Computed example of a mutant assay.
Amino acid sequence: METLSFKSRDYADSGAFDAYRDLYSGGSDVTALGANFAATVRGIRFPQLLLFDRTLQGVSHERTRRRVGADAFEHLMLQLVVEGRMMVLAGNVVRVVEAGELVLFDLTQPQRTWTASARIITVAVARAVVVGTLPVATDLHGTVLPRIGSELLQDFLLSLARNGDRTHAQMAAAATATVGALLLATLGGRTAASEDAPLVGAARVNLILEFIDANLVRPDLTPEIISTQSGISRTALYRLFEPLGGVAAQVQKRRLRAMRLALTRQGDSRSIGEIAIACGFVSASHASRSFRAGFGLTPREFREASLKVAGAKAAMPIDAVLQRWFDEVR
Rank of each mutant, 00 (worst) to 15 (best):
M86A: 08
T138W: 12
G84N: 02
L183F: 15
Q79F: 01
L76W: 04
A193P: 10
S194W: 09
L107R: 11
T178P: 00
A185R: 03
V93Q: 10
R147K: 08
E101S: 15
L187P: 13
V82Y: 11
L80F: 07
R162F: 10
T176H: 03
L182N: 02
T143V: 08
I148A: 15
F73N: 11
N163A: 04
V88F: 00
T113W: 11
W114S: 06
D196S: 14
A99M: 15
L183M: 13
Q154M: 14
V82W: 06
W114F: 05
S194F: 10
W114G: 12
E98Q: 07
L183P: 12
R190D: 02
P146N: 08
V144S: 09
E151S: 11
A181W: 02
A116C: 10
V125E: 01
E151R: 10
A181H: 00
L145G: 01
E74D: 14
L160D: 02
L80N: 03
T178M: 06
V129P: 01
T167M: 13
T138S: 15
G132S: 09
F156C: 03
P110A: 03
M87S: 11
L158I: 05
A99K: 11
T176E: 03
L140Y: 11
L134R: 02
A169V: 15
V131D: 15
